[in-house]
């Protein structure tokens, strides 16, 4: 087993919803509940889920942009609360992030060169020539000209901006990058360029990726392991090939059916899936979150939340019925 860079234990985050009246509190929303995941060096882990599944909240928790309600995030085996200042800085250098929207993640007032240099200047305290050299180096690595450093973000296209965001993440020579829907806002032809770039970089630099996406096909392209989230819970996890070719959980099966190419008139839609949409996960442990949509649910599913169990080595599922 390779070394765990980041791992979580029963990680949970709730948000309080505010109702109509100033003091009328509504039940908390469990954005992330009871997540145990591990990202090892050089490993690519895909987190798949639809909107509201908690995948972005999970990313923010792992990046320490959000404090967990309960549970622990560990960096190289040590809980976050126990890290000292130097170790926190080391974490910031080791784990970088790329976000979905390259229009809002780059400051419009900074030149590309300054944007890419920022992690080096702020976290590493570097200055001058050495920073310039590194900026040029990573810009070339992501397929941009060194002269791009002189431009402002508005002078670049969406695909180029996302390359800049990747270059910024690479600048501090991280061990892991959290990628939150990095290709969702890009057009198909540009998306392929960026996915190829990410795969190349991962192999060249032995990076670990936590790749968050709603698109099963991109996850399959980039990741060795995948975890499927539904309303805050990880309902299935395992090697990408196993999960995608033989999904166990009814929700994973539904996701897969929705993503497979189909011809007109060919029956592909499973009508046994009832209500088409997810509801908010407001209660913690009362039953399986997917039960209201599940074609196989029974009385147990409504009473208690299924526990995660290992069906084959490395393949986990949380379901009473499979």
């Amino acid at each position: 087993m390779s070394r765990a860079l980041i791992s979580t234990e029963r990680l949970t985050k709730t948000f309080t919803r505010h109702g109509g009246f100033v003091f009328s509190r509504q039940p908390s929303v469990y954005a992330v509940s009871d997540i145990n995941i591990q990202l090892s060096e050089g490993e690519t882990l895909g987190i798949v889920g639809e909107s509201g599944s908690g995948k972005t909240t999970l990313a923010r928790l792992l990046l320490q942009l959000e404090k967990p309600t309960s549970g622990i995030v560990r960096f190289r085996g040590r809980a976050f609360g126990e890290l000292n200042g130097r170790e926190v800085r080391e974490f910031r250098n080791t784990v970088q992030a790329v976000f979905q929207d390259p229009y809002s993640s780059l400051s419009p007032r900074m030149r590309i060169g300054e944007i890419v240099a920022e992690p080096l200047v702020v976290a590493r305290g570097l200055r001058g020539q050495i920073v310039q050299r590194r900026v040029g180096q990573v810009l070339e690595q992501v397929g941009l000209k060194v002269s791009t450093a002189e431009l402002y973000p508005h002078e670049l296209s969406g695909g180029q901006r996302q390359r800049v965001a990747i270059a910024r993440a690479l600048a501090a020579a991280p061990k892991a990058i959290v990628l939150d829907e990095p290709v969702s806002s890009l057009d198909v032809s540009i998306r392929a360029q960026v996915l190829n770039l990410l795969r190349q970089l991962q192999r060249d630099e032995q990076l670990a990726y936590l790749f968050i996406s709603h698109d099963l096909s991109s996850v399959r392209y980039l990741c060795q392991r995948i975890a499927v989230m539904y309303l805050g819970r990880a309902i299935e996890e395992g090697p990408a090939d196993a999960v995608l070719s033989g999904p166990l959980h009814p929700y994973t099966q539904l996701l897969r059916a929705a993503a497979l190419p189909r011809w007109k008139g060919q029956p592909g839609v499973q009508h046994s899936y009832r209500a088409a949409e997810a509801t908010l996960p407001s209660k913690a442990n009362d039953g399986c979150n997917f039960a209201p949509r599940c074609p196989q649910f029974n009385a147990t599913c409504l009473r208690s939340a299924p526990l995660r169990r290992e069906t084959r080595p490395g393949h986990f599922v949380a379901c009473h019925e499979c």
Binding site: V188, Q193, L195, N196, L216, S217, R220, L260
Partner: peptide
């Protein structure tokens, strides 16, 4: 042709995607 091959597919493992250079 390029559009059809540029998106990753769920039903097959792909070594690399055909990307269309430029914009």
């Amino acid at each position: 042709r390029a559009l059809l091959r540029a998106a990753p597919r769920l039903d097959e493992a792909m070594e690399s995607l055909e990307s269309i250079p430029g914009e």
